[in-house]
């Protein structure tokens, strides 16, 4: 019956099954935020190939875009960006004191919308590339 009990991490993220909508929204928002700022640094680094010359720039971008994995990652980036935008709008509303009683529903709505937009964009993003 004696059970070891760790009051460390278990109190926070070890309890993820018990998290409510607002907590999940925060975790997703932080996570997507980290991805986006990380991407911004990468993005500027890739575009810096323009400094080498027009050829290098065009070749770098088209070379990357011809890779299947890059296209998949781009779809992922879209999903991340769309969620961050939609949940960001939700948070702006919360900051203005609007819809605090329905904050859980607006979180689910932003999840569903993100899924729809991402799925609908897959054909465009995957156009002209093969594995």
């Amino acid at each position: 019956m004696s059970q070891s009990y760790n009051r460390g991490l278990i109190e926070d993220f070890g309890r993820w099954k018990e998290f409510s909508a607002g907590m999940w929204a925060w975790i997703f928002h932080k996570f997507t935020g980290w991805m986006l700022i990380g991407y911004l640094f990468t993005h500027i680094a890739v575009l810096s190939s323009a400094l080498t010359g027009p050829e290098a720039y065009t070749n770098t971008i088209q070379g990357l875009e011809s890779l299947f994995i890059i296209r998949v990652l781009e779809v992922g980036l879209l999903a991340v960006a769309v969620f961050h935008i939609l949940n960001g709008l939700r948070l702006l509303m919360v900051d203005l004191g609007i819809g605090l009683d329905t904050q859980d529903k607006s979180f689910y709505a932003s999840l569903v919308l993100t899924a729809i937009i991402t799925v609908a964009s897959v054909p465009t993003f995957m156009d002209g590339v093969t594995i």
Partner: peptide
């Protein structure tokens, strides 16, 4: 945030839907 919501959506739309990212050239 309010500014980025608009411009990020515009940026994605311009460079993935209006202009396909794979067709980007220096020109």
């Amino acid at each position: 945030a309010a500014f980025l919501v608009v411009v990020l959506a515009f940026h994605f739309f311009l460079l993935h839907f209006v202009n396909h990212a794979a067709d980007v050239t220096f020109m």
